[in-house]
């Protein structure tokens, strides 16, 4: 337990000291979202209709950016062997790394998302649901991203490969997250969608540690 917490603390302090990386992700998030009003036109009604989708898709793409370094830097610097030798199960350690990834990159992204949503004319009543869907959906993305990052350790074509692995598996999260906000705007109950998002998070919380640990074990062997 103490080794897991130590790893979490180390990754968080690393994230704090390299604020530049987080800021790059945030900048990508804002700039990529800004492209859409140029691409599809600035009419408020059209933007309001697609705002949720844009925020979510761009958040999904932005969450790919820090993945390449997640385990690859450990493998390059010898930290991977330390993780395998640490007096804690590898499954717990990779969870700590995913938690740090989520706190370090997903939380800032969620904090910025209302600003982006405002620029995209999202209806006011939908903000709460958008934030709830991001809070419940991004843990799944961080865990899925962790699987992709662990599988791609040592691979030749890093970032494109990561997108190929992670994006198809992230589609269900995207579907129900956007459906929740659409339901809020349409005056329907948002609870089933949010419950499903929470269910996805629990599912990946159960599956991802084992997949990541298996991938890292065979990467180190």
């Amino acid at each position: 337990m103490s080794a897991t917490l130590a790893l979490l603390r180390r990754d968080l302090s690393l994230a704090l000291r390299n604020v530049g990386e987080t800021l790059t992700v945030l900048a990508f998030f804002v700039i990529a979202a800004t492209l859409f009003p140029f691409g599809i036109g600035p009419e408020p009604q059209i933007l309001a209709r697609v705002a949720t989708g844009i925020v979510w898709v761009v958040a999904l793409l932005a969450s790919l950016l820090p993945l390449e370094r997640l385990f690859q830097s450990e493998a390059d610097e010898g930290g991977l062997d330390q993780l395998l030798l640490a007096p804690a199960p590898l499954e717990a350690l990779v969870l700590a790394k995913c938690a740090a990834l989520w706190i370090g990159s997903a939380l800032p992204l969620i904090a910025v998302s209302p600003i982006v949503a405002t620029m995209l004319q999202l209806p006011t009543e939908a903000y709460g649901t958008l934030l709830a869907s991001l809070l419940l959906g991004t843990p799944s993305l961080a865990l899925l991203g962790g699987i992709g990052a662990a599988l791609a350790v040592g691979a030749r074509k890093g970032s494109a490969l990561l997108a190929l692995i992670v994006l198809p598996l992230a589609i269900p999260v995207l579907i129900f997250a956007v459906a929740a906000v659409e339901a809020q705007i349409g005056g329907l109950s948002v609870r089933p969608h949010l419950f499903l998002l929470a269910g996805f998070a629990v599912f990946w919380l159960t599956v991802a540690p084992f997949a990541m640990a298996a991938a890292l074990r065979q990467a180190a062997s």
Binding site: I147, L151, A155, R156, L161, I165, A211, A215, A219
Partner: peptide, 28 residues
């Protein structure tokens, strides 16, 4: 997922690494 499997399978210099990595992806 098939495409990702094939990409991951061929992404390593060591064939066994590619096979094992993509096997985990296939199960997920």
């Amino acid at each position: 997922v098939y495409i990702a499997y094939m990409a991951l399978n061929s992404a390593f210099d060591d064939d066994t690494r590619g096979a094992r990595s993509s096997a985990i992806l296939a199960l997920v």
